[in-house]
Design a protein around this nucleic acid. Structure first.
Lengths: 185, 185
DNA sequence: GTCTATATCAAGATAGAC
DNA sequence: GTCTATCTTGATATAGAC
């Protein structure tokens, strides 16, 4: 099966959302796939290699949602929030955002993975800045807005709220989002 | 030494900030203290027991900062942000917020720890709501504000930004905070 | 390309000496 | 209260058969 490799990547992505990078194991992965640990080690010799592959997978997903949002028919001023809502749809029920999970383990990871996580984190900001620029050109944002700072606030509050939501319940995220929209009016 | 127990708790708190709860080990803890694993198992039979003790330690720290902020001489409208800034001072250099670290491992932890983490998370919101109420009475917030929603936004964006700051640099947090203050003007 | 088998190591935990 | 010694488990990883 030539897509065994991508099958492993998808399952790892799910496992990272559930357990985090350091806590998921090849053993558990193998059992879920009905293969042996050795077979996973064949495709990804070290856990770090699998980690890097998952980062690239996340990067692609991020890019895809960006393009879809950018080209979609919805109003430009809605696109930053549409992007965020679209992204969190991909999260497993009660899972953490995989980028947040990787950030949490950041200090324990190899340099190769740290660089990937940096790229991912920066990409999230850049994409939001781009969508905010479009929104601004359509007149929905005050011209004084520092768009990078606004993107940083959007991504920070989103990720923070996702963490609390798992502990304090679904409502938490919606309350945060409504409050944010209220302040941006 | 009767405070060996609290010595262990403090060191564990540091370790959770650096590695997360599931990733720190009794072995590493013991070496840092110059004792054996067994000695730590004596004070905290199971890792879960140590985890609960650390949660209570965090809870106390949270309460202490709340009281100090509440009773301090600074203007009431500054207190919510003063509280947040005071809290993040306790973080190790490049460490994660211990509550965020515990939230990240939430699903893998025992029920006793999950309950403690819930309490901690809710307490953070409650404390901010209280400080925001004081600020509002002093006229610095629009009367239409939903204070719980505002507290949720404050704590979410703070925690999210702390995660990104470790990866993207010190500036990230400050930009988020300035943007937030700008929107609240 | 996938398997069995195994090496190696570190983890949490316990029993019992001092 | 702290130690040595040890048990058990589960992790990453490798060698080599098929």
């Amino acid at each position: 099966m030539t897509n065994r490799k991508s099958q492993i990547i998808e399952l790892t992505l799910k496992n990272i959302q559930e357990k985090g990078f350091t806590s998921f194991s090849y053993d558990h992965l193998a059992k879920e796939l009905g293969v042996t640990k050795a077979s996973i080690h064949y495709h990804f010799e070290k856990k770090e290699d699998l980690g890097v592959a998952v980062c690239e997978r996340i990067q692609k997903g991020l890019g895809d949602v960006y393009i879809v949002t950018k080209e979609s028919a919805i109003a430009a001023e809605e696109k930053p929030f549409a992007f965020i809502l679209q992204r969190i749809k991909f999260l497993e029920q009660n899972g953490v955002c995989p980028i947040s999970a990787l950030q949490a383990d950041y200090q324990e990871l190899s340099q190769a993975m740290q660089e990937k996580i940096q790229q991912l984190s920066q990409m999230e900001v850049d994409v939001l800045v781009d969508l905010l620029q479009d929104a601004k050109q359509h007149g929905s944002l005050k011209s004084t807005e520092d768009l990078e700072a606004l993107a940083i606030l959007l991504i920070s509050s989103t990720k923070g709220a996702l963490q609390y939501k798992r502990v304090l319940g679904e409502d938490f995220f919606h309350k945060m989002l409504e409050q944010l929209k209220e302040l941006l009016k």
